[in-house]
Design a protein around this nucleic acid. Structure first.
Length: 138
DNA sequence: ATTCTGACTTGCT
DNA sequence: AAGCAAGCCAGAA
């Protein structure tokens, strides 16, 4: 995974507000590069410094392996949830998930500007890297 | 070049 | 609602 890609992903994730969330695939789409699995790979290895819990599966299930910690944060942030998470908090049993329909982040115009800037910077860099002999390639 | 793997997604039982 | 199969995208071996 190129560092430029990792940084671009983290830059976008850092913009997601508390109480909202997006799916891995959403980030890839906003970035216009790579797919859901790539975002998952980035979050898995480099997500610790950003609000990683706000990026999750399209189903609303929390990032695998971090369900407990994520749930505590969702409750704290007032993120819309579905299912019996209360029981999960008590006993560790019970199914729940984020209500992505209600919680999904809707970027403001300003957010879109920042996202576009990140996406453009990334694309520019990747293009340069993939075409060492630019000049003639038109 | 081929195969395997994974913090993914979607559609169908 | 819960599993499963395929499709998907890239990096690693």
């Amino acid at each position: 995974m190129r560092m430029e890609y990792v940084e671009a992903v983290l830059d976008v994730v850092a913009l997601i507000p508390a109480g909202t969330a997006v799916a891995y695939g959403d980030v890839a789409e906003l970035l216009g590069s790579g797919g859901a699995r790539q975002i998952g790979a980035v979050m898995s290895h480099h997500g610790s410094a950003v609000p990683w819990w706000r990026v999750l599966k399209a189903s609303g299930d929390a990032p695998p392996g971090h369900e407990r910690e994520a749930l505590a944060l969702y409750v704290l942030e007032g993120t819309p949830l579905l299912g019996n998470y209360a029981e999960y908090l008590r006993t560790g049993e019970g199914r729940w998930r984020v209500d992505l329909m209600a919680a999904r982040w809707a970027p403001s115009d300003g957010d879109f500007d920042r996202i576009d800037a990140v996406a453009e910077r990334l694309e520019r860099t990747l293009r340069k890297l993939s075409a060492p002999d630019d000049e003639m390639t038109v």
